[in-house]
Amino acid sequence: MLTADLLANAVVAGILLGGFYAAVAIGLAIIFGQLDIVNIAHPAFIIVGAYTAYILNSRFGFDPVLVGVLAAPIFFIVGAGIYRIYYAAFERTGQESLSGLAFFFGVMFIIEVVLILVYGVDYRLVAARYIGSTWSLGFVDLPFRLLVPFVTAVALTAGVYAYLSRTFMGRAIQAVAQDRLALQLMGANPVSVKQWAFALGMATAAIAGSLLIIIGPVEPSVGRLYIGRAFAIVVLGGMGSIPGMFIAALILGVVESLVTTFWGPSWAPAVAFGLLLLTLAFRPSGLFGR
């Protein structure tokens, strides 16, 4: 029944989970929120990041977070390549609304099927010394398998936020989001700025993937659940606002954790999508809409 320590534990676990969701959604906050590219394959790339962590961890014993950071530059390059194809095939010809969406859907599907063909549908997990130990503060438990992703995700969010608001390239990315033509008039090339931003968003998928597999075992179709979560967070956060995205991620984490604790885990997947549908119906500009 409803007791104070059960409630407190559910809220704390929700905040930790929400922090991790911020790492999942931050790439999409850039790619979808700022660039208006509906990359529904983003969660599939996060799963690729998780499998990268799994392979290097099980074979060489690397720490998953370290693998995530090391894989990020490779994801960055792949992301730049994908944007090139997307630009040449859809954006230049003005077909991004129908064909572009279907393109990313196809890419997502191919990634999932290839992972199933190579690794099967078994759940995979990583080993690290901190996974499994718990830090107890009074009656509140802080499991390290949630705490490590939370801390990494907060650092990632802060880093991306600082990058977007402080550096020249970061400001250029925000400029292309606001007014593409004006950026062109300033002598900058919007395509190369967008390519850089897309690649940056993809790089965060490597880190998010390594965090995902620390939290729990992963199998190829898990990515689909994160489509709704990530898009719900970005839309609720107000399309591209990084602080808004972070708060929305915490809200989703807490609500999901409460639902899991008091109604049962089989209802949890519907929370994100319900939140998304409600946001679209009643406040499509999000909590912190521009």
């Binding site: 529904i40 898009f231 519907a270 998304l276 549908l277 679209l280 499509p284």
Partner: peptide, 28 residues
């Protein structure tokens, strides 16, 4: 009715969301 008054992409995302909501409802 809920999403088509907004931009087209919201409809696409809402249909994805709807699929999971119905799957959860029927599973339960």
């Amino acid at each position: 009715y809920l999403t088509l008054r907004l931009k087209g992409v919201y409809f696409a995302i809402a249909t994805l969301a709807m699929a999971i909501v119905f799957e959860t409802l029927i599973t339960n």
